[in-house]
Write a protein that binds this DNA or RNA. Structure first.
Lengths: 339, 339
DNA sequence: GACAAAATTGTAAGCGCTTACACTTTTGGC
DNA sequence: GCCAAAAGTGTAAGCGCTTACAATTTTGTC
């Protein structure tokens, strides 16, 4: 079928012998449409290959058919995995995905929140990935009127899927402590301005507390979720003169970077230093990196599903819920008992 | 300033004392607007925090303020890097980015092309990342009327940025041959249905040709750009009974997978087998993987810039051009002379 | 200064949808 | 069967822009 222009709702109305209004309702599965009308409209729409114009729909007060995924950075392994998994779910539900990377930059982040009102007229929903919210930002998000769901966030008034970050970090740290290490360094996420206020850092600290150990500030350093950042952070630690016998990195990529820096400085793992991360990155097996495994694509897909559910079923929305998926310690070769 | 609703063009018109039409023209920098009007409109718009409604603009025949990035998969390192770099450029030019991952699935890919006409009313432009086009698809793309640019494609009638893939593969293969290897296996990209028809495979074959060597079909296997795929492919090769003395992987992630599989089977690198990839992934340095380095973020950013230029300057568009960035062989520890 | 041409500005008609409200048909209780 | 309520359908008014085209002002020339 050759058409110069896209079919409009008008075309569908004519072909189905019904009014535009009925067609509109039928297409969106609204009530007050007879079985017969429904069929006719569906038939006509299919025959014409009709798809509603997102712009017109939106302008008239309807939906945009788009959702935005907001990530602190899109390059890190975790986010790339989660984004793709979510994008798949959204696509299957008929939504297009707008990707917004905050690029770990405060200015971009600020711009995002300032522009929320405009974004709200472009997308129907928001999937936030590990965005560390400052006071007032929850309110800003709610004020935008956008349906929201998130991955890896805490205490938010919308659906969230994640792992128990504090517990995961505790598992990793506990493993190190169990091996007799007590001079522990930590490569903490720099997502939060204060690196000692992230859930994973808290888990680290709690494990130390339980062993009546305290966190030494010189052994704490911030690092983003990348190999380069991990390397930089570990290098800084070493330059400071820190000589931990074990290192807990907040994610595997940072751990890889730590491994690199350690080797750069002639320190052997696990002989001189034990290293553990969180993620179970595909490379971790090969490198023998001990880690705490978490399901990644599952989290993105799960959260995306919750968002879709909310979007598709607006009349009786479900209660916001928080889903924590399991993590599992995987002991490999980068951790060993302190000599 | 508190507003119940977003400011509309009408508000700007009233505040600036001009008509809606003039405001519209002024805002889009169209000709026939006096300096004075321009200033007043700009002032009023700024004061109101006005941003045009994308939906209304689009519906009336204007632009959408969005571009789509289409990638074979969004999880591979290369694509994640390129996507973020491009997203940054688009964002800086005022465009939102729609991410479309084909997920390496034929059905999704088909759906994408079938839906092009609809996509065309959602976005102004398309950035294609390494999409291997089948006959007729260029025409479909052109028919959509979307401004297009690409990364890593060949013979396309729009701006393209990439590396000389054939040359890069030749460099890698030549390196292996120069070390005395002649039983070469290749993990070829499975982007194309026929793995022996990709530019990198051609480069591989050309290098062999130059040494009067032929490609042995048993030593060719397809693999996606991921560690798991590389591992699977190498495992298959070994299961076939293939015993190459060197392996060329089409990308570093596939090479990492090969390294994994090789070790699984007790084969030592580079003692028994040499391995080389293409990319210079951040992990390659640590692993000592020999590779052919390519600029990745640069390609995404460059192509995005070309697309923006085309979008922003429609009256006198530049000629489509093809930009090839340099690649460089990096010899590390996974390749050594054949004993 | 007068007049045509050029530059600027305004009017109004949509773009393709959603939705309030009016109208028509069907349903069910007695 | 009758009538009110419920269910189904249609009418028409926008949503906030862009853009022909008409109207007005400015500019330049003789």
């Amino acid at each position: 079928m050759v058409r110069t222009h896209r079919a409009t709702i008008q075309d569908v109305a004519v072909l189905s012998g019904l009014s535009i209004c009925t067609v509109s309702r039928a297409l969106r599965n609204l009530p007050n449409v007879s079985e017969r009308a429904q069929q006719q409209v569906a038939g006509a729409a299919a025959k014409l290959g009709y798809k509603a114009s997102a712009a017109a729909s939106r302008l008239a007060g309807g939906s945009t058919g788009q959702v935005a995924i907001v990530a602190p950075t899109a390059t890190a392994w975790f986010f790339a995995q989660a984004v793709e998994a979510a994008e798949e779910v959204f696509g299957d539900s008929g939504y297009h995905t707008v990707l917004i990377s905050l690029r770990n930059k405060a200015s971009v982040r600020r711009e995002f929140f300032a522009d929320l009102a405009n974004l709200a007229q472009r997308v129907d929903g928001l999937l936030l990935l590990n965005i560390d919210l400052a006071p007032g930002e929850v309110e800003a998000l709610e004020a935008s009127g956008l349906a929201t769901a998130s991955v890896g966030m805490v205490n938010v008034p919308w659906d969230n899927v994640g792992i128990d970050d504090e517990h995961a970090a505790w598992q990793a740290t506990q493993h190190l402590l169990g091996l007799g290490h007590w001079d522990l360094a930590v490569l903490s996420s720099n997502e939060h301005p204060v690196v000692t206020e992230t859930p994973r850092f808290r888990g680290f600290r709690r494990a130390l507390d339980e062993h009546h150990l305290t966190v030494h500030p010189d052994l704490v350093v911030g690092a983003g979720p990348s190999i380069d950042d991990g390397r930089r952070a570990m290098t800084e630690l070493i330059a400071r003169g820190a000589r931990p016998t074990a290192v807990f990195a907040h994610c595997d990529e940072a751990a890889f970077g730590a491994l690199t820096a350690l080797r750069d400085h002639g320190l052997s793992v696990p002989k001189n230093v034990s290293v553990i991360g969180i993620d179970n990155h595909p490379m971790s097996g090969f490198l023998g990196l001990s880690t705490v495994a978490q399901p990644v694509a599952d989290q993105g897909a799960f959260a995306a599903n919750l968002l879709c559910e909310r979007l598709l079923n607006t009349e009786n929305p479900h209660q916001p819920s928080n889903h924590l998926l399991d993590t599992k310690l995987i002991e490999r070769k980068t951790t060993r008992h302190k000599r």
